[in-house]
């Protein structure tokens, strides 16, 4: 097979895959009602999404060689997801606050830290991930690890409460009327030195 034909075939396959991944993301957003499209569009998206997922091998067993091969390919090429950043709408941001309790009754507050602005963006993304994660055991594991990291810096704390909330942003009109960003409690996890499992509060 001539080399140009091989390159042309790869081009076709590569971009078919990228377009399919983008379509899947768009259907996902529409199907979950995140867009202003009517309910009819939502129903269509819900019907089409499984078909697109099948094309991408996402419905096959995790050990399926085609699924694994495709996953490996798109991770190596950075094409594992769509490009809908800040779309269709900009969500409220999540916030995580550590409440440090000491044996003498003192209480301090800490935010997840980073020593540079570049790393700060990444830590903020991690906090967003906690807010987005629907799978409770995963969310709990991430929070627990972040609490451990806080504990390394505050070894005297006897209990740390990790409070997860949402930063509710004002509209321009509300801002002009004096309203500022507010904090809405979502859930909290308590961790003690005894390494007891955390107790979520809602």
């Amino acid at each position: 097979m001539p080399r140009r034909a091989i390159h042309a075939a790869w081009f076709l396959l590569h971009f078919s895959l990228i377009v399919t991944i983008c379509v899947r993301e768009a259907l996902w957003s529409i199907g979950r009602g995140f867009t202003f499209l009517p309910a009819g569009a939502r129903a269509i998206a819900e019907r089409l999404e499984p078909i697109v997922e099948t094309l991408l091998g996402r419905r096959a067993a995790p050990s399926n060689p085609i699924r694994r091969g495709l996953s490996t390919y798109w991770h190596l090429g950075g094409i594992e997801g769509g490009y809908g950043y800040f779309a269709p709408n900009v969500p409220d941001s999540s916030k995580l606050v550590f409440e440090l309790h000491y044996r003498d009754g003192r209480v301090d507050y800490e935010l997840p830290r980073a020593s540079s602005a570049a790393a700060g963006l990444r830590v903020a993304g991690l906090v967003e991930e906690i807010g987005r994660t629907q799978y409770e055991p995963l969310r709990q594991s991430i929070v627990r690890m972040m609490v451990d990291s806080c504990w390394r810096e505050h070894p005297d704390a006897s209990m740390i409460r990790a409070v997860v909330g949402i930063v509710v942003l004002p509209t321009p009109a509300e801002f002009e009327q004096g309203k500022r960003e507010s904090y809405e409690f979502r859930y909290a996890y308590d961790f003690t030195r005894a390494e007891n499992p955390p107790t979520p509060e809602r």
Binding site: F15, I18, C22, A26, F34, T35, F36, Y83, G84, Y85
Partner: peptide, 19 residues
């Protein structure tokens, strides 16, 4: 690739009323 990135990124934003 860039054409696909912007087209789908823009399209996703078009579907949100806030943009």
């Amino acid at each position: 690739h860039l054409s696909i990135i912007y087209f789908f990124g823009g399209l996703a934003k078009c579907l949100g009323s806030g943009w």
